[in-house]
Amino acid sequence: MTDSPTLSYVNVFARDIVALSQFYMDVFGFTEIEKIRSPIFRGLDTGRSSLGFNAQDAYGLLKLDEFSQVSGIKFLLNIDVASAAEVDEMTPKAVSLGAKLVKSPYKTYYNWYQAVLLDPEGNVFRINHMLE
């Protein structure tokens, strides 16, 4: 019997894979997985899984051309941090690096503390901390 499935990567299609991956490295301190770098891909080690950035050329490579113009928010990145104070620290840092604040840090009904933002390419992400 094999181990249970695990999430290895979340890949984001990006107009500028270098700039967008650098944004996430600068805000969260993620490191690039240089051995998998290519002209159309950058991967970041997030600690538990990985975050990948695909250039627009990957649509053709994956036979996804007909879906490349789908509009609207289709995913939500959730990045957990160690404390509510880190949510408060990283939110303005992300904004200073080009993110747009959608919802300031707040306590949710399910007892998390989080902020909702759009990265420089308009992808939605949350900075989260689960309260006790």
Rank of each mutant, 00 (worst) to 15 (best):
T2K: 13
S4R: 09
L7R: 01
S8G: 04
Y9Q: 01
V10E: 03
V12D: 00
F13I: 02
A14W: 00
D16H: 00
Q22A: 13
Y24H: 04
M25L: 05
D26A: 08
D26R: 08
T31R: 13
T31I: 07
E34Y: 06
E34P: 00
K35R: 12
I36V: 14
I36E: 12
R37P: 00
S38I: 05
I40V: 14
F41A: 15
R42V: 11
G43K: 03
T46D: 01
T46P: 04
G47I: 02
R48K: 13
R48A: 11
S50P: 04
S50F: 08
N54W: 15
A55E: 05
A58P: 03
Y59S: 10
G60M: 08
L62H: 15
K63E: 13
K63L: 14
K63N: 15
L64Q: 09
L64F: 06
Q69T: 14
Q69E: 14
V70N: 14
S71T: 15
S71V: 14
K74G: 15
L77R: 07
L77H: 08
I79N: 02
D80I: 09
D80C: 11
V81N: 05
V81M: 05
V81E: 03
S83I: 08
A85H: 13
D88T: 04
E89V: 10
E89H: 12
P92G: 00
P92D: 00
K93N: 11
K93R: 15
K93Y: 11
V95N: 04
V95T: 07
V95R: 01
S96N: 10
L97R: 05
V102T: 06
V102W: 04
V102L: 12
K103L: 06
Y106D: 13
Y106P: 06
Y106N: 15
K107A: 09
K107C: 06
T108H: 07
Y109C: 04
L117P: 00
L117T: 00
L118F: 07
G122Y: 06
G122T: 07
V124D: 04
I127G: 00
N128A: 04
N128V: 10
H129C: 07
L131K: 06
